[in-house]
Design a protein around this nucleic acid. Sequence first.
DNA 1: GAAAATGTTATCAT
DNA 2: TATGATAACATTTT
Length: 248
Amino acid sequence: MPVPEGPSLVILKEETARFVGQQIVDAGGNMRAIDPARLRGQTIVSLRTWGKHFLIELPTMAIRVHFLLFGTYRVNEEREGKVPRLWLRTAEGDLLNLYACAIREIDTDLDSQYDWSADVMSDAWDPKGARKKLRACPDMLACDALLDQDIFSGVGNIIKNEVLFRIRVHPASTVGALPAPKLRALVEEARQYSFDFLGWKKQYVLKQHWLAHAKKICPRCDIPFKKAHLGRTNRRSFFCENCQKRYN
DNA sequence: GAAAATGTTATCAT
DNA sequence: TATGATAACATTTT
């Protein structure tokens, strides 16, 4: 199963925690970005996430993994008939397989590269900062704002649809037209729902908790949802025209 | 079997 | 130049 949205990366980080401090004794895969030979002998300094980025910090560099739409991984097992884009084997015999992802090398210090306060899953998450960024682009649509990785790093299309339904805001509302309490709710729910997502995903009950995403009927109003591809991002939006108010 | 979809980035076009 | 559309990637489900 794919791993795109931020909370899923937190699960990945937890499942790979034992790799931290281990030395990479062998590496390979069908990636082109990095020569696997350069990874051998390096020790994994830390494993971090920033939104949808999985970061493997090594002494001389960091590996940035993005799972795009369909990326997956396995710890100490392999997918039948699939070649990993990148695999790492450690001195203690642990194996990490990463499939169908985009790999990039980062040569600068991670703290200078990433704004951790934009990551909705991070301890450094800064709701005040998020509100400030939102106020700076009043013409942006709510559906686009939630998918903006510089504001809500880690939020994906599922979280977007669920947050807007929870706070009863129409996806085509403009950010600048939202009353202050709604703007605040948008920021609060982006984080809250992401953690609900995390808990449900761990219990394998995420999908059954969807109220709006990919749903046909509004559970509050019992009338059909609208489905449309909205905003600059043109991603699927599911919304109720009765109980989600449009602010413009 | 075609189409769509939890996403991003590079390239082409306007 | 800048903005926007399109393609590319890759996998599973409908």
